[in-house]
Design a protein around this nucleic acid. Structure first.
Length: 227
DNA sequence: TAGGCCATCTGGTCCT
DNA sequence: AGGACCAGATGGCCTA
C-alpha cells in the first residue's frame, strides 16, 4: 500500500513548485515501510526486528535487547512499561537519542508490543499520505517543510481556490490576477498563510502566485483557517 | 529557554 | 478475539 502511495508521488506531473524536495527521511521511511511489511509477513515472530538476525540495517543504530525486568531507570519515562517494548527505535525514526528496548516476555507485553508495531505501521502510512499531500500542495520554494496541520489547512484552502476557479469559469490566471487586484476572499474564509512567521510572505501578496498555474510558480503557503 | 512539531507508547473503543 | 482507530501522555529535536 505504501508502495502505491510512493508510486503516486512520482506521478505528480504538476507545474507547481510543490514541496517536492522529499527530505532524506522519505527514502528512509520507504525503507522502513518495506521493513515493516516484511516483518508483518513473518508470522509468529514476536519481534519483527528479530528477523533481522539482530543485525541492524542501520549501522549507526545499535540494536539492543534488554531484559525488561532490568530496565535502566532513565529510560523512556513516558512509555513506562514499554520503554522495554519497543524495538530498536533508531529503525523507526532518525532520532538516535531515543533508546528504547525490546523484549516482551509476558503475554500481555507481547500483545502490547504487537499492537505497538501495528500502530507504528499505521502512523507510517498516515505520514506517507501526508508526504504525498505535501507534494500536491503548492508552496514557495523557500518555504520550509509544511507541518501536518499546515498541510491540511493549505490543502483545504487550495481545494477551495480551485473550486472557485472552476465555478467562476474564468481563466485561472485572470481569476488570480483579479483576486490580487481586489484581494482574495473565498467563500470558505480560508486564510492563505501558514502558522509559521516565515510564511507570511506567501500567499496572494506576492507577484502572481496562482497566476502561474500554467507555468511554474508557487501559490502560497496558506493556512485555511475556518474559524 | 520556551514553544512548536513530531514519534512513540498506551489503553480504550469500535469493528470485523 | 484480534485488528484498526483514536486520543492522551511523554520526551526529543529544532528554531526563534
Amino acid at each position: 500500500m505504501e508502495d502505491a502511495l510512493f508510486d503516486l508521488d512520482q506521478d505528480s506531473s504538476t507545474d507547481f513548485a510543490f514541496w517536492g524536495q522529499m527530505d532524506t527521511n522519505i527514502q528512509f521511511q520507504a525503507q522502513l515501510d518495506t521493513l515493516l511489511f516484511d516483518c508483518t509477513a513473518v508470522t509468529g515472530q514476536l519481534s519483527p526486528w528479530s528477523s533481522l538476525g539482530g543485525q541492524s540495517i542501520f549501522p549507526d543504530a545499535p540494536l539492543t535487547f534488554t531484559d525488561p525486568d532490568s530496565q535502566s531507570p532513565g529510560l523512556g519515562a513516558g512509555a513506562e512499561v514499554d520503554s522495554s517494548s519497543s524495538v530498536d527505535e533508531s529503525h523507526e525514526t532518525m532520532s538516535t537519542h531515543k533508546q528504547r528496548r525490546f523484549v516482551p516476555h509476558h503475554p500481555y507485553k507481547i500483545q502490547r508490543h504487537a499492537a505497538n508495531i501495528r500502530e507504528r505501521k499505521r502512523m507510517l502510512s498516515i505520514n506517507s499520505a501526508f508526504e504525498e499531500l505535501r507534494c500536491h500542495v503548492p508552496t514557495f520554494p523557500y518555504e520550509k517543510r509544511l507541518s501536518k496541520i499546515d498541510t491540511l489547512r493549505l490543502a483545504i484552502a487550495y481545494i477551495a481556490l480551485l473550486r472557485e476557479i472552476l465555478l467562476s469559469g474564468c481563466d485561472p490566471k485572470s481569476y488570480v490576477d483579479e483576486c490580487m487586484k481586489n484581494g482574495y476572499k473565498n467563500q470558505t474564509d480560508a486564510i492563505w498563510n501558514t502558522s509559521g512567521e516565515h510564511n507570511k510572505l506567501a500567499g496572494f501578496g506576492s507577484s502572481s502566485p496562482v497566476g502561474d498555474i500554467d507555468s511554474t510558480a508557487v501559490v502560497a503557503g496558506p493556512t485555511a483557517e475556518t474559524s
